[in-house]
Design a protein around this nucleic acid. Structure first.
Lengths: 137, 137
DNA sequence: TTGATTGCAAAGAATTTGCACTGGG
DNA sequence: CCCAGTGCAAATTCTTTGCAATCAA
């Protein structure tokens, strides 16, 4: 669980908005758009400005606390960075995000990069389709 | 090479703007933002509206003539769809895009999807880093 | 002719920024 | 006390749309 400690280490002051945003990100779903974070706080009766949500998420991203994804559709999606790299499966119907990790895929990526003399810094693999639930429905 | 024939088959009238945009997409680099397409045409002395570039690219996308990518950085990148699926390596310095295809990666993606009961419709794999040239510089 | 296509300008959506006020350390 | 942090509104950036004029078939 992320705490004030993480904030301090990132050189960020421990403020209410930041703690609240952290606690939203820790929620069950794990993947949120800025709007979802904002609405979630409003629904919980918290006062917060939309701009602050964006600013804080961006600060968290720079501090390495949060990962930002650009799935299809234009909106950014944020998740807490637990240090465990993983890729994502996004349901095109219910927008649910499922994480996965495949060592072989990772390995092949490095191999391909090396083949091309490309210095790999980062990568993103998103798979789009229908999750189990949405297929049945 | 894409031609008026492709347009007709897609139910699109053969117009100058469309042909010009097609010819830009056929250019060497192969991957363009809407702005690059627009500027390329202006530089060539062609009259065209920015909105038309976007409209045409979107029509081409819907017609299956063009693929649209959302690399990091917010801007969409377009390329002609030659029917040969491939993934992309994007140089974070010079923004050059290199295509690659790895059967093993493709295979593992299907396997992972199946494991999760996920019906895979599409995927995007982008690798970010430094291309050969930019490492040397 | 006639509906498809364009150009232009204005609208939209997502995200960022300027600035004065507030608050954590 | 003092500067980081926040709220608010306005600005940016990328992309889409409405509408009247224009063009391909």
């Amino acid at each position: 669980m992320s705490t004030a400690k993480d904030l301090k280490e990132a050189g960020l002051k421990t403020t209410l908005p930041r703690l609240r945003i952290l606690s939203v990100l820790e929620g069950a779903k794990g993947h949120f758009t800025a709007e979802e974070v904002y609405k979630s706080l409003l629904d919980a009766g918290e006062e917060i400005a939309f701009a602050t949500v964006y600013r804080v998420l961006t600060q968290f991203e720079n501090a390495g606390l949060v990962l930002r994804h650009n799935f299809e559709g234009g909106r950014s999606v944020f998740e807490l960075d637990d240090g465990q790299h993983h890729d994502h499966m996004v349901c095109v119907k219910c927008t649910t995000v499922t994480e996965f990790f495949d060592p072989l895929i990772e390995e092949r990526q490095s191999a391909v990069a090396e083949e091309y003399g490309f210095k790999l810094e980062d990568h993103s693999l998103y798979m789009y389709g229908l999750c189990k639930n949405c297929q049945e429905a």
